[in-house]
Design a protein around this nucleic acid. Structure first.
Length: 973
DNA sequence: CGCTCCTAACC
DNA sequence: AGGTTAGGAGCGA
């Protein structure tokens, strides 16, 4: 530090209390965490940083630090045990905020300094002295009178809230003495808030007057007998030592030891790291400040993932239910019930009736531009794309719609054709349609807005629109998705889905035009591009309008129900990741499938002949009805189970059991069925999904399971065979292009590991920590047999039980699985609970929790609702109980891999790797990797996957990932 | 043509 | 026995 430099010292602790008291006390983050003081602190600090970055006004700091009190006991307590003894403990809701505020300072990239045994004021005094000695200037950001003693020619105090700067003159005006006499003044007056005694009967006015007359405290105490006023004289004599003690208490220690990285020169200022700061502010859900900071630091907030802050000692989770009405008034912040909240929001969103006649058709570029300007002004819009086919990958863009405010919506036709156009004649004269903006021009106008960080694009199933726009080179950001918001809020095992029409009826009481109504179905179906533009305007603009209103209804619930974290970390950021995976697709070798199909056909024909011969007649083995009649009627075999509708069941289990009794026909049926399945569902169906580059693009659904798992469809690539050798042959058709390999990385036993953690089972945890065969350990524990040389059948039974536990075991189910009597299965379960009592506790607690709340939670806070768990029907109830037991385990595993996926792309990119994530199969990720980068990629993938729970959750068992590279999926797996 | 039932593929 | 999607059969309109 040199002459002309300027040090800013922020009195952090004083800041905290001011922020706390200045703000409404009940500000909370969506998960219930109180953050009012953090918010106030960040706003004040940002204002300061922003002002100090502005070179056009005032002083610009060259050095900057935020100073905190370390603890309440300091050297002053050894001088005087009563020092600050009257201080009350900080309020409960302030406590968790101290740590967060220190995090805030670090996020601002500012030195955060505190020292055990010293007060912030001492550190401030020390830095002030050092800076002045070095020839610099100092601004102390505080209004604490204890700091007035530091003011001097080069040192001022700055009260940010009142925007007042105090120099020596201002101190004199305020207290009647110049700063150098402040210590003596305080020693005389004492300080009730710090419990500094001072001299009784002497307040600031008298003290100033006395010091004016006698010069210093020491002088005054010595000449006290001269004082005329009896009481004052007596007190000054009697309490002289107390005054001297007070002086030592109020005198700041300007010689505080400073550690490494805390030296004056270490406080040299630098530009804040925009991403780091935005990540923190996002995590704290300070939306306004996030926006401001992002803009000022030229950071794209939507690109930044909110920081994953670990917050200790904060009540959250099961015990804190924000919707419980408090016992005593003021007990709990939240008194709204979801129903009340939703009702209020619904009124707001439907206040403006849905009126399709008001929707606008935009046919020229100028009008489109003015609408986009409106969107920019507004900062958000609902956005929807219409495509020629229902699949985003294959469909061409036909038009887009958007809504700026409820009722204010428009449709932009882009590639409509005349209604009588057909495949042969192609598009008719576009002018007859009333004019359309050509695709390229429309995209040029849309792109800047769709990619504008300050305009939020709200969609319903926005992954679809992301993919459509991605096909046109537009990467939409930032985004929100009403489907995903609804899913985070209300994932349930019931029938309620998260489709727009459903949501609209549920929340807005409005039934939108359905796709079928618009385009027809079956024989009457026609492409949307051939539907009259006026009709499509009503349909498409309505979709955008409804989406916007749904967003208004649903988005606030995220925060109110503490689900913002789930949405923001597990849902929203995954959408673009999945869109890119879908766009890439996976390469499939058509020849391999075709050869397999031929082979399966031949075998199938042979088996069909066998079957007909054994049955003594031709029948359709694919008809369970006909098959049942043959087996249990004509041939008189013993029937086992019945299906729901009362038919004899002919599923594989039944047929296997019959085969085991020596019947040949059932065996052949099983073989036939397997081949038929493989051929029909895979070898024959998959080629029809291939694109011109030989790649298959599945569609992942983010909101169709209750537990948080993804699903895959058109085609489903999450059920490609693996169990049998013939099935695995299908996997060999999934390949990497020349020069690349497929890498498959899968979590080993992730659900059992999560069970071990959640239910806290010592034996299971130890086994996982020590890499012991978990099923063998279970068998050994249950049946008392050594792991060495264990009968594979015994291990198989234990394995079935372990899986059964995850599924919310029942004697019926286990008996079915193992083909053993129900009584025997019951005994196994009993034994299991005896050996692992924690499991039964977990099950009981989970059931009770689900019954009380109507939902269960994963470790990451995702909820799965089971309203029917209180059903009077014992079967329904039991089913819901088992599902509720399973959901936290399955769901936590789903959350873990989602976290890995959200982080994966940037981790690979940071490592300079070109690997591309293609598929997710629940506990497995599949990548396409350049031959030269395989080892490095596997290392990064494994690291990201294994570390995925942290830092939000720290599992007490390690996660393990197996990864392998090969030319095809079968060998990589 | 559209729905339900049954079965089977996966984790 | 928890979570899925797909395909064929069968049936009614």
């Amino acid at each position: 530090m040199k002459k002309g430099d300027h040090l800013f010292l922020v009195d952090g602790s004083a800041y905290i209390f001011r922020a706390y008291h200045a703000l409404p006390p009940l500000t909370r983050k969506s998960d219930g965490l109180p953050v009012g003081a953090v918010s106030g602190f960040c706003n004040m600090l940002w204002k300061l940083v922003e002002e100090s970055r502005d070179t056009s006004v005032g002083v610009v700091p060259t050095h900057f630090a935020v100073i905190f009190d370390y603890s309440s006991t300091t050297f002053r307590n050894t001088l005087y045990s009563e020092y600050k003894a009257n201080r009350e403990a900080p309020p409960e809701d302030l406590k968790p905020q101290f740590g967060l505020i220190r995090e805030a300072v670090r996020a601002f990239d500012l030195p955060c300094i505190e020292k055990e045994g010293f007060e912030a004021d001492d550190l401030i005094a020390t830095y002030t002295r050092l800076a002045v000695e070095a020839g610099g200037d100092v601004t102390i950001v505080s209004s604490d009178k204890d700091l007035m003693q530091l003011v001097g020619p080069n040192v001022i105090l700055y009260d940010q809230m009142k925007d007042k700067r105090l120099g020596a003159q201002e101190v004199k005006e305020k207290f009647g003495v110049y700063p150098e006499k402040m210590i003596d003044l305080q020693a005389l007056c004492g300080d009730t808030s710090d419990n500094v005694p001072g001299v009784p009967g002497i307040g600031p006015k008298t003290a100033a007057q006395l010091l004016e007359e006698y010069g210093t405290l020491e002088e005054l105490l010595e000449r006290a007998p001269e004082i005329k006023q009896t009481k004052r004289r007596e007190n000054l004599i009697a309490f002289a030592d107390q005054a001297r003690l007070s002086k030592r208490l109020v005198t700041l220690d300007a010689d505080t030891p400073l550690g490494d990285g805390e030296q004056l020169d270490d406080l040299f200022i630098h530009e804040p790291d925009g991403e780091k700061l935005v990540a923190y502010l996002k995590a704290m859900e300070f939306t306004t400040l996030t926006r401001r900071v992002a803009a000022a630091l030229d950071t794209d907030a939507s690109d930044v993932e909110s920081a994953d802050l670990k917050i200790e000692g904060v009540p959250r989770g099961p015990d804190l239910d924000p919707f419980e009405v408090p016992d005593a008034p003021g007990d709990t912040v939240f008194t709204a019930t979801p129903a009340r909240l939703a009702a209020r929001l619904k009124d707001g969103a439907t206040g403006q009736a849905i009126d399709r006649s008001r929707y606008v058709t935009i046919r020229d570029a100028q009008t489109l531009r003015s609408w986009m300007d409106r969107a920019r002004d507004k900062g958000s819009m609902a956005f929807d794309t219409e495509t020629s086919q229902l699949s985003a990958m294959n469909g061409d863009l036909v038009g887009v719609s958007f809504a700026i405010s409820p009722g204010e919506a428009a449709y932009v036709p882009i590639a409509h054709v005349a209604a009588d156009a057909d495949l042969l004649s192609g598009p008719k004269d576009a002018t007859s349609l009333g004019g359309q903006i050509p695709l390229g021009e429309a995209l040029d106008i849309l792109k800047p807005v769709l990619e504008d960080a300050s305009v939020l694009k709200i969609g319903q199933n926005i992954k679809y629109d992301l993919l459509v726009m991605l096909q046109h080179g537009i990467a939409m950001t930032p985004i929100d998705d009403t489907m995903l918001i609804s899913y985070a809020l209300d994932a349930s095992s019931g029938l309620e889905g998260h489709g727009m029409d459903e949501l609209s009826e549920r929340w807005l009481g409005h039934k939108p035009i359905s796709y079928k109504e618009l385009c027809g179905s079956g024989r009457t179906a026609r492409p949307i591009a051939a539907v009259e533009i006026d009709k499509v305007t009503e349909y498409a603009a309505e979709d955008a309008d409804v989406t916007l209103r749904l967003w208004q209804v649903l988005k606030p619930r995220l925060a109110a129900e503490r689900l913002a974290h789930v949405y923001e970390r597990l849902e929203r950021p995954l959408a673009p990741v999945l869109a890119r995976m879908e766009q890439r697709g996976i390469m499939v070798d058509r020849q391999i499938l075709s050869r397999l199909s031929g082979r399966f056909s031949q075998k199938q024909a042979g088996i069909e002949a066998d079957i007909a011969q054994m049955a003594g007649e031709e029948f359709n083995p694919g008809s369970p009805k006909q098959l049942g009649e043959i087996l249990f009627g004509k041939l008189g075999l013993p029937g086992g189970k019945k299906t729901k509708s009362g038919q004899w069941s002919t599923d594989a289990r039944v047929l296997e059991d019959l085969a085991a009794e020596g019947h040949d026909l059932p065996r052949r049926i099983v073989d036939w069925r397997q081949l038929t399945k493989l051929k029909g569902t895979y070898t024959d169906a998959l080629p029809s999904h291939m694109d011109e580059n030989g790649r298959i693009h599945t569609s992942f659904s983010m909101a169709s399971t209750t537990t948080g798992r993804l699903s895959s469809s058109e085609p489903n690539l999450q059920n490609i065979p693996v169990r049998t050798e013939e099935g695995r042959a299908i996997r060999t058709a999934f390949v990497a292009p020349k020069g690349k390999k497929l890498v498959s990385a899968d979590y080993s036993q992730i659900e059992l590991r999560i069970l071990a953690h959640i239910a806290d089972i010592p034996q299971l945890k130890d086994a996982f920590r020590n890499g012991i065969d978990i099923h063998a350990m279970t068998a050994s524990e249950m049946f008392g047999v050594p792991v060495e040389g264990m009968d594979p059948m015994v291990r198989r039974r234990a394995k079935a039980i372990n899986f059964g536990i995850i599924y919310g075991i029942s004697a019926f189910g286990l008996a079915n699985q193992l083909s053993i009597p129900r009584e025997e299965a019951g005994l196994y379960i009993k034994r299991y609970f005896e050996r692992f009592p924690g499991i039964r506790d977990y099950m009981d607690q989970t059931k009770a929790y689900a019954k009380k709340h109507g939902y269960v939670e994963t470790l990451f806070g995702r909820r799965a609702h089971y309203p029917d768990i209180t059903s009077k029907n014992p079967q329904v109830r039991a089913f819901n109980e088992r599902a509720a037991i399973n959901a936290p385990i399955q769901g936590t595993a789903a959350d873990v891999i989602r976290r890995a996926m959200v982080r994966m792309e940037s981790a690979l990119e940071t490592a300079g790797l070109s690997a591309q994530m293609l598929l997710q199969v629940h506990d497995e990720l599949i990548f396409e990797v350049d031959d030269s980068e395989i080892d490095e990629t596997i290392a990064v993938v494994r690291r990201v996957m294994e570390a995925a729970p942290g830092p939000s959750v720290s599992l007490s068992v390690p996660l393990e990932v197996d990864a392998k590279a090969a030319t095809n999926w079968d060998e990589a797996h």
